[in-house]
């Protein structure tokens, strides 16, 4: 069985652990550098990206994660997607650069602009998982302003890509871990 890590520095890592279990995998809650050797893929959860950056630097995990992403699949949701981008705005901040995307933080606004919507995913997504609408929970969410070559858009909302695959990596600006639909996590497991 593949071992999937969930970066557990801050944020909704427990919700991702429960989602992985629903998708049929056992989560490894990654808090230390040494655990990166035990896993086949890693999820960067939602939370506050500035808090996670601070902790990544303090725990000497930043360069290790960038290196991990050059070899193994990484899936980021919301703050995790911000950490994986090459460019971050509002405000600019450092990131791992695992995916060639530009991300604007809090681009829909504040908590009062958070929302739950139903999306029509791309046929490619339904083909690789199962058919049906995709419920997306956006919480103080970022917007992907640019996606580089080789990015496959698997779902859009209001004209912006919200679920993108690029090579071995996957990002969502919404929170599939906060729904009972396990398809996005299953898609990631299929990449390991």
């Amino acid at each position: 069985m593949k071992r999937v890590g969930v970066l557990s520095l801050q944020g909704d890592f427990a919700a991702h652990g429960a989602a992985l279990e629903r998708a049929g995998a056992a989560p490894v809650y990654v808090r230390e550098r040494s655990q990166l050797g035990e896993i086949d893929g890693l999820i960067l959860p939602g939370g506050e990206s500035t808090t996670m950056l601070k902790l990544l630097r303090h725990e000497n995990l930043f360069d290790e994660l960038a290196e991990f992403g050059r070899r193994k699949p990484v899936f980021g949701t919301c703050a995790g997607a911000i950490l994986m981008a090459t460019d971050v705005t509002n405000p600019p901040q450092e990131s791992l650069g695992l995916m060639d995307i530009a991300v604007e933080r809090n681009a829909y606004g504040r908590q009062l602009d958070s929302r739950v919507v139903e999306l029509d995913p791309a046929p490619e997504f339904e083909m690789r998982t199962a058919p049906g609408k995709l419920e997306a929970v956006f919480i103080r969410a970022p917007i992907i302003r640019r996606a580089g070559n080789g990015a496959q858009v698997l779902a859009e909302y209001a004209g912006d890509p919200v679920l993108i695959e690029q090579g071995r990596h996957l990002v969502a600006t919404f929170h599939p871990e906060l729904t009972t639909d396990a398809r996005v996590h299953c898609l990631f497991l299929g990449k390991l």
Binding site: Q10, G11, F13, T51, Q111, R115, V116
Partner: peptide, 18 residues
């Protein structure tokens, strides 16, 4: 309800933090 899920959703994002 959508409201409860969004509200608790933000609280989830604050876990493990200060």
């Amino acid at each position: 309800s959508e409201q409860f899920r969004l509200n608790v959703g933000l609280a989830e994002m604050l876990k493990g933090g200060v």
